[in-house]
Design a protein around this nucleic acid. Structure first.
Lengths: 230, 230
DNA sequence: CCTGGGCTGTCATGAACCTGTCACGCAGGT
DNA sequence: ACCTGCGTGACAGGTTCATGACAGCCCAGG
């Protein structure tokens, strides 16, 4: 399984090191910055799987970083855990309402932090937790690279697999071709956006085999989405 | 908008009432049981959108309930928040590792609990967390590009979608044709203002399908507005 | 080293759908 | 009754998407 990439935004060097150590032990790929502005850049480039965010960091406030991450389409659904000394109910509620997925107050136990990160990741990126992805009658075993529909194994090529995986991680969401190119092909691919159509078609052909209803919805002038029809 | 359904498993009657009150105020549909076995049945039948689970409930332990919910395919994806007096790190980590999405220790602040429920739901069901635009019996899932009226999916073209979205963002407001052209078509569109009429008509036709009352009000010599009549 | 098969990206074509406009008739206000 | 503004149906043109074909690429096996 791919290593989970974490972005740690924390200006207390000692704490940052402690956290880094713990997550590296859990086989995370940890990037660290004490600076808020840099955090935004790193998040956009490296697209981490999760962000740990201190309330007060250099440059801008953590909560502002959170807000901006949520506003940029490329980073809007990266899970964020706020990590701070501010334990007032007021602050916690504000953090959560700003779009944070969890809020941990210092001092915290590293084990609990690891557990909370695990809980959030399990929810957002089940594939990283080694779990199977499912939607409607589709199951994807990310470890064994196998996809089933209604129990039957569906043969998929590499790109079709990654494409379907991305859809399964965000069922129901509509993705533009550009966003799919970013997510499935990588940020630096200079690929014609119409090419996505072709891969969608190949994925459809493979997964709808045998009169199964089409599980991919075309949203005209917007993109594609996984959709069971409900 | 569809109300979020919550299953509350808690044997402290007073606390249950408190929690129920707070979430009803947030327009949740709350079902309550003090019994673990019954909780499993209810979860399978009613498929709630979220489960609040006390650590110790009658019948079986909360953590066992959690484990079993995760094992049943029908309930495996329902988010669970553990809700308990056991504040030991050991317990919190165990709860999270068992599959809980969050772990809140008593005594907790109702506001924070509401915020945490919101954070989890935002992740799992964006449409339920207020990320959907709603007015009267109309819901628009902006992420999934889907519109429902009274639960039924309404097919809309791109322009109709943007038009309705603009109305939903300012319910009740009357917009002149020029204003709608600016907002929906863009400031630099040299389009005949009467064209708006046609799109209003198309939107009406699509969204009033099936003898539903007209939700768009024509204001003579002023423009159009979203209006349920109340 | 060569070969063959699968995978990938691109393109041309046709179909389906969306869109802006018009003409006409009706309705509301004066 | 008159005038102005709105609703409606039709339609041509344009845009977006689905589809089939094709050449380059990579890799496995001979």
């Amino acid at each position: 399984m791919a290593r989970a990439r974490m972005l740690l935004v924390e200006d207390d060097a000692a704490l940052a090191e402690l956290v880094t150590w713990h997550f590296k032990r859990e086989d995370f790929d940890v990037k660290h910055t004490p600076d808020g502005e840099e955090a935004l850049l790193l998040a956009k480039e490296a697209t981490p799987d999760i962000v740990l965010l201190d309330w007060m960091v250099e440059g801008i406030s953590g909560i502002e970083v959170c807000r901006r991450l949520r506003r940029m389409p490329e980073t809007a659904n990266i899970p964020i855990i706020m990590l701070t000394a501010r334990g007032e109910e007021e602050d916690r509620v504000r953090g959560l309402e700003t779009g944070a997925d969890d809020y941990v107050t210092k001092p915290f136990s590293p084990r609990e932090l690891v557990a909370r990160v695990g809980a959030v990741l399990r929810r957002v990126r089940p594939a990283l937790a080694g779990e199977a992805l499912t939607y409607a009658d589709i199951e994807m075993d990310t470890v064994g690279h196998k996809v089933r529909r209604g129990g039957e194994v569906v043969p998929l090529g590499p790109t079709e697999f990654r494409l379907l995986k991305h859809f399964l991680e965000h069922p129901g969401w509509v993705f533009s071709r550009e966003r799919l190119l970013d997510a499935v092909w990588g940020h630096d691919s200079d690929i014609e956006s119409r090419t996505v159509d072709v891969h969608i078609r190949r994925l459809r052909k493979a997964i709808n085999r045998g009169d199964k209803p089409d599980i991919i919805r075309t949203v005209r002038s917007a993109g594609y989405a996984l959709d069971s029809g409900a």
